[in-house]
Simulated scan of single mutants.
Amino acid sequence: MAQHQIDPDTLPYDPERLPAKPPVSIDTFFSVDLRVGRVLDVEDFPKARKPAWRLTVDFGPHVGVLRTSAQVTNYPKEELLGRTVVGAVNLPPKRIAGFESQCLLMGGLAPDGTVTLLELPGELPPGATVA
Rank of each mutant, 00 (worst) to 15 (best):
A48N: 13
T56G: 03
D7N: 14
F29A: 11
P22I: 00
G60W: 01
V24N: 04
V57P: 12
A48S: 15
F29L: 15
S25D: 07
P93Q: 05
D44P: 04
T114P: 12
P23D: 15
F29P: 01
N90R: 04
T28V: 11
I26W: 06
R54Y: 03
L109Q: 10
L18I: 15
F45H: 10
A20C: 05
E100H: 12
P125C: 05
P51Y: 04
E43H: 12
P61I: 03
Y75D: 02
A70P: 06
T56Q: 09
A2G: 08
E16Q: 15
Q71N: 10
E79C: 00
I96V: 15
V39N: 10
T84M: 06
K47T: 12
T73K: 15
D33T: 07
V89S: 06
G113W: 02
P22C: 00
R67H: 13
D58I: 03
A110T: 10
V32I: 14
V32H: 08
V115N: 05
S69R: 04
D33E: 14
P126I: 04
A88W: 01
T116M: 11
M1G: 15
S25W: 00
F30I: 12
G127I: 05
V89Q: 11
R67G: 07
V130C: 09
P19S: 09
V130P: 12
P121C: 04
H62E: 15
K50M: 13
L55D: 09
A88Q: 05
Q5I: 13
G60T: 04
C103V: 12
E119K: 14
P23T: 08
P23K: 11
L55F: 07
L55G: 10
F99D: 11
L81V: 14
A97L: 02
G37Y: 04
L109P: 06
F30S: 10
I96E: 01
P22E: 12
A131P: 13
T114E: 15
E123F: 01
S101R: 06
A2I: 09
L81I: 14
W53L: 04
D112H: 05
G98I: 08
T68V: 02
S31V: 01
G87L: 01
D58E: 05
Y75W: 00
P15R: 09
V130T: 07
K77L: 04
L34M: 11
C103Y: 04
Q102N: 03
D112S: 04
D7L: 00
D27W: 00
V39W: 08
A70S: 13
W53Q: 08
P22Y: 02
S31I: 01
L91W: 07
K21W: 00
A2H: 13
L34D: 00
H4R: 15
L40P: 08
L120P: 02
L18H: 06
V63W: 02
L118S: 09
H4E: 11
R67D: 09
E43G: 02
L105E: 02
L11D: 13
N74A: 15
T114A: 11
R67Y: 01
E123L: 03
A2N: 13
P111S: 07
R35G: 06
A48C: 14
H62V: 08
V32A: 15
P92T: 09
P19A: 08
